[in-house]
């Protein structure tokens, strides 16, 4: 014989009893008025709770949320990556140095350069300092400059890849 406890009656209204238990409960309910009253009350509660009304969120709530999000996204300024700016600057300087070296090599071979008049004007403009700059990029120094820049580029490339890998690992640890 099954005892008609509140727990059994709750399971009854939730449809959690198996076929045998259900038959037994129905049989017992026919003989137990007090349990039947409890079941009726429980059903009344269940039906009443199914009619709970959803309360409305404040007016214009969605608009306010979207405005807040829009304002926040405007407030976030794009971050300047000084690391990458440095890399690009070094790379650009390297390219310029190699171009100058190439032009100087060409001058040696031909004896006359098409850009000589411009260099002369630049010499006049910059003055004596250009002579030291000019001599620095003489043939003997070109190889040294190019080698140094290559080394710098390799080192910066290594740090770039390391930085990228660390960032990726950090991102994975956040999302998982």
């Amino acid at each position: 014989m099954i005892k008609l406890t509140d727990e059994i009656l709750n399971k009854y209204i939730d449809g959690e009893l198996d076929v045998n238990e259900l038959a037994e409960v129905k049989n017992e309910l026919g003989k137990d008025d007090e349990a039947l009253a409890r079941l009726k009350a429980l059903r009344a509660v269940d039906e009443s709770l199914r009619k709970i009304e959803v309360e409305s969120a404040p007016n214009n709530f969605t608009e306010r949320i979207m405005q807040t999000l829009a304002a926040k996204s405007k407030a976030v300024k794009p971050k300047i990556s000084y690391f990458f700016v440095s890399i690009v600057s070094i790379f650009s300087l390297g390219v310029i140095a190699i171009m100058i070296a190439a032009v100087r090599s060409l001058d040696k071979e031909t004896g006359q350069s098409a850009i000589d008049p411009f260099i002369d004007k630049a010499k006049e403009f910059v003055g004596k300092n250009l002579n030291s700059f000019h001599s620095f990029f003489s043939n003997q120094n070109v190889l040294l400059v190019v080698s140094t820049l290559t080394l710098i580029l390799l080192v910066t490339a290594y740090f770039t890849f390391e930085s990228h890998r660390n960032f990726k690992n950090k991102l994975n640890s956040i999302t998982h």
Partner: peptide
């Protein structure tokens, strides 16, 4: 969930609301 429903059920029984509601 069961305790909440039982508490409300006991109140309905107290006021004999169950007959009126069903």
């Amino acid at each position: 969930l069961h305790r909440s429903r039982n508490a409300l059920k006991d109140l309905l029984l107290k006021h004999n609301y169950q007959e009126e509601m069903l």
